[in-house]
C-alpha cells in the first residue's frame, strides 16, 4: 500500500515538475496545483521577475 502510494507520489511530482517547467518557459506562472505538489509557495513564486 505504501509502495503504491509512494510510486503515485513520485509520478504526480514528476508530472507537476513537467507542467511547471513548460509554464515557466513561456514566461507564465505555473498552475497553483502544480506549485503545491512541488512544495513551492505561490506568492514567493509570483515575486520572481519572470
Amino acid at each position: 500500500m505504501t509502495v503504491l502510494r509512494s510510486i503515485r507520489s513520485v509520478f504526480s511530482t514528476l508530472r507537476a515538475a513537467v507542467h511547471a517547467a513548460s509554464a515557466v518557459e513561456m514566461h507564465r506562472v505555473p498552475a497553483t496545483r502544480d506549485l503545491n505538489t512541488l512544495g513551492i509557495d505561490k506568492d514567493a513564486f509570483r515575486a520572481i521577475h519572470l
Partner: peptide, 8 residues
C-alpha cells in the same frame, strides 16, 4: 501573468 482555471 496568472492563468485562471480553464473551467472559468
Amino acid at each position: 501573468m496568472t492563468s485562471p482555471e480553464p473551467q472559468n
